[in-house]
Design a protein around this nucleic acid. Structure first.
Lengths: 249, 249
DNA sequence: GAGTGCATCTCGCTC
DNA sequence: GAGCGAGGTGCACTC
């Protein structure tokens, strides 16, 4: 059976379905009143409440409350899930080896138990990251300014990697720090550090923060340090753009 | 009805259940073959595949594939969810106002649709954070060393906030940088920056990195800069410790 | 509402 | 496996 779902199951049935689901490497869904304790990188305890529990074929384990985007408790992929029954009560356990992490769940009342052997080979296609920005600038350096010639990407320094290194039309060295969203003071400080490294060489260097926008504090700090800001939106174009709009709407 | 669940529903039934679920501010669960496009802070497209969709009463919207901990697509709390039907096909839409973000989902085949008005007032109790460490040191400064007297927490500098500032038994200034997990080179660099700020004052200052452990690179960098490392585990004690173990096992 | 920094961050990459 | 950095980070907290 590829898919099974049972409302208000007995503890025995609930146990059986979960156990089968784990062995079949299916996606398991539970709606239940439960409590949970976690021990590992930190420690936590969650009292009884009604939640959704999700166990994935890759070992991921999630407990979702009725609010927030993040699960309230979880275990990462490759964790080992187990189900057990003691005195008519069903327990779930998920263990990660390295680092040692334990999640234990007690199910008090199960409203729905279900497993589903799903098929999904699709990968998400995204655009609009810092990496995309780097590629865009590399291909179209004039977006930064006329005469800009990028020379190195991911240039390694003692302070970290410089996103893009290049020269302006006058041959002056330029250090570019890219951010795909609004840049804060931290981005400026980072850029400043790269420049300090280069200034030891007694050369004149320009530092440019490239981002769609910048906070007021950051702009102030930037100007204090004679650094520059260049507004640039990250590229916004998927591979099969036309296909999408046709397929969906 | 507080809870409803329907296997392989017709598009019309599926639409009705989701629509009711949204109006009742229930937790909605879907198992379905779907595709999704997202536009907002970035842009993404996901082809057809079998997934679990979760819509929470607070507006959170999650699409989970059969792998990974993170949803492949999502919308944050307070987003507005809508369901619609066109030519016998059910569509989901979730919109966020600020920043503008759109998630559109087309359901091709629904295996399970369900909503559930759940009750969960419980908050998660956690311990083992950096904040806990700060409190621990503040109360038990001798954990750092005999004679250590902390004076300020979250001391603001141009380089950021110093976790703990204090003096040793000889009255020498100490800067403490706390990390709740293994400290890397970045933690050392951060500490170094705080010290540089203070050295301008021509005072002798000790810099101490406090963490459960440290990477080899970081330790090397630390010693090069005459900084110190103090191994300290973040506190690991919940409020009602005894109660937990009794309740669960 | 915007800005800042932690997180059981997760995840992908490189070494 | 460990370390490092980006993320549609999320989230709480401050201003």
């Amino acid at each position: 059976m590829k898919f099974i779902s049972l409302e208000s199951p007995s503890p025995t049935d609930c146990f059986k379905i979960i156990d089968t689901g784990i062995r079949k490497r299916a996606l398991i869904i539970l709606l239940a009143c439960c409590q949970a304790t976690y021990e590992g990188r930190a420690r936590s305890r969650l009292g009884f409440g009604e939640r959704m529990i999700l166990i994935k074929p890759d070992g991921s384990f999630l407990i979702h409350q009725d609010r927030k985007l993040d699960p309230v408790n979880w275990q990462p992929p490759k964790s080992r899930s187990k189900v057990s029954m003691k005195n008519g009560v069903v327990f779930l356990e998920s263990v990660r080896r390295i680092p040692q992490e334990h999640l234990k769940v007690e199910l008090k009342e199960v409203h729905l138990v279900s497993y589903y052997q799903c098929q999904d080979a699709q990968e998400l296609e995204v655009c609009g990251h810092e990496k995309d920005m780097g590629e865009l600038i590399w291909k179209h350096p004039e977006l930064i300014e006329k005469g800009f010639r990028p020379t190195v990407r991911e240039y390694s320094t003692s302070k970290g990697f410089i996103d893009i290194l290049g020269k302006d039309s006058k041959g002056q060295l330029m250090i570019l720090e890219l951010k795909s969203r609004k840049a804060g003071t931290n981005a400026v400080k980072q850029l400043k550090r790269y420049l300090n490294d280069f200034k030891d060489d007694k050369k004149e260097v320009r530092g440019i923060l490239v981002a769609p926008s910048i906070t007021e504090d950051a702009l102030e700090l930037l100007e204090e340090n004679n650094l520059e800001f260049k507004s640039l939106e990250p590229p916004n174009e998927l591979k099969n753009e036309k296909k999408i709009t046709l397929d969906l709407f």
